[in-house]
Design a protein around this nucleic acid. Structure first.
Length: 190
DNA sequence: TAGGCCATCTGGTCCT
DNA sequence: AGGACCAGATGGCCTA
């Protein structure tokens, strides 16, 4: 028996398609004289400028130093958010036992990671209430929990799965830890 | 169709 | 002065 890995209903979602494209012509509704519009990457649907009154240029659409500064700032902001998303992806990649076709949302990723860390901490505490050496065997199992398959009702066996010690998030609010065959359920502090 | 999630733009604030 | 960070606003996509 493997751990059930389930977040709240609907928490696991299939990956979204990449955001669709929007041409710069779609933006700003600024039609004619502004060839300046052609420069923006806007591969994704940036929105702010698209709803402005056609007569109003967004700042980045204005020619001149102000417009260039805005464009640079937008570019940095885009890059910053991409870095943030990369970090979130890295975090997702080390979280245990999620079906491959599911992707945690940002908030789910953070909460799940929070619970995971908390569960590991609890496990360490249980394993070593007096502060002695940690149970490294157990920790190794926790770091490499078995994968799960929805096709098997959330359970699947795996060659390296030790049925006596694993971490099992029940949902984003709670988790359970099977330690040497004994189940411990924990409610999260969320 | 509504709601959730996301990417982007934007202006304000803080920091170097 | 310029960059980093943040939150609000907005439109697109997807799912129930």
């Amino acid at each position: 028996m493997s751990p059930a890995v389930q977040c709240e209903p609907g928490a696991l979602r299939t990956p979204r398609h990449p955001a669709t494209t929007r041409t710069s012509e779609d933006e700003a509704g600024d039609t004619s004289e502004d060839s300046f519009l052609g420069r923006l990457p806007s591969v994704y649907g940036g929105a702010a400028s698209s709803t402005r009154h056609p007569k109003h240029r967004s700042r980045s659409e204005r020619p001149g130093p102000r417009g260039r500064r805005r464009m640079k700032a937008n570019d940095r902001e885009r890059h910053r958010m991409h870095n943030l998303n990369s970090a979130l992806d890295a975090l997702r990649s080390i979280l245990p036992a999620l079906p491959e076709d599911a992707k945690l949302t940002k908030i789910e990723t953070l909460r799940f990671a929070h619970n995971y860390i908390w569960a590991l901490t609890e496990t360490l505490r249980m394993a070593d209430p007096q502060g002695r050496t940690a149970d490294l065997t157990l920790m190794s199992n926790l770091r490499s929990p078995p994968s799960v398959s929805p096709a098997e009702s959330g359970y699947v066996s795996s060659p390296d799965f030790d049925p006596h010690s694993y971490y099992a998030p029940v949902n984003e609010m709670s988790c359970k830890i099977i330690r040497r065959g004994e189940a411990f359920h924990f409610a999260s502090m969320w």
